[in-house]
Simulated assay, not measured.
Amino acid sequence: MPPPAGRDSPVRARRRGLLVGAALVVAAGLVTHFVGSGPIADLAGDALYAAMIYLFIAIAFPRAAFWVVGVTALTLCTLIECFQLTGLPGLWAESFWPVRLVLGIGFDARDLAAYAVGAGVATLVDVAVSRRRRARA
């Protein structure tokens, strides 16, 4: 059954909100990367990266359970971090620098903790926003 005239479907409204969130997280991540420095900026950038991955997965699968999206985002971030141990992302970044933003270039175990924080916070924010949206409906 289509939504009432003038109202988006819940999935469409969710995707729109997730896209806005993703744009804000990407902007914050780029600012952190290009303006910030030191270990705090590095960890914040990694947490934002995990939040961005969460949002992209949630956009692709808007009906998936929150915890599934969160665990998937954390798993993907962990796999990408472990892939850095091969040295391939660093090699590829020499030829095409944006690879550095997507895959990183060097393994750092501290990044795994930042990914857990980023995916966890993204999950909690998504749950809170979704509950609030349902309460208003």
Score class of each variant (00 low, 15 high):
Pro2His: 05
Pro3Cys: 04
Arg7Trp: 03
Val11Cys: 06
Arg12Asp: 06
Ala13Thr: 07
Arg16Leu: 14
Leu19Asn: 01
Ala22Phe: 06
Ala22Asn: 01
Val26His: 00
Val26Pro: 00
Ala27Cys: 07
Leu30Tyr: 02
Val31Lys: 02
Val31Met: 07
Phe34Met: 08
Pro39Phe: 08
Ile40Leu: 15
Leu43Gln: 15
Ala44Trp: 01
Ala44Leu: 15
Asp46Trp: 08
Ala50His: 00
Met52Pro: 00
Ile53Lys: 01
Leu55Gly: 02
Leu55Met: 08
Phe56Tyr: 06
Ile59Pro: 00
Ala60Lys: 03
Phe61Ser: 07
Phe61Pro: 00
Pro62Asn: 08
Arg63Pro: 01
Ala65Asp: 13
Val68Lys: 10
Val71Arg: 05
Leu74Asn: 05
Thr75Asp: 04
Thr78Gly: 04
Glu81Met: 11
Gln84Phe: 06
Thr86Gln: 08
Gly90Asn: 09
Leu91Asn: 08
Glu94Ala: 14
Glu94Arg: 15
Phe96Val: 11
Pro98Leu: 12
Pro98Ile: 11
Arg100Leu: 12
Leu103Met: 15
Ile105Trp: 00
Phe107Lys: 05
Asp108His: 11
Arg110Ile: 05
Ala113Asp: 04
Ala114Thr: 09
Val117Ala: 13
Gly120Leu: 11
Gly120Ala: 10
Val121Ser: 01
Val127Pro: 03
Val129Cys: 10
Arg132Met: 13
Arg133Pro: 05
Arg134Lys: 13
Arg136Cys: 05
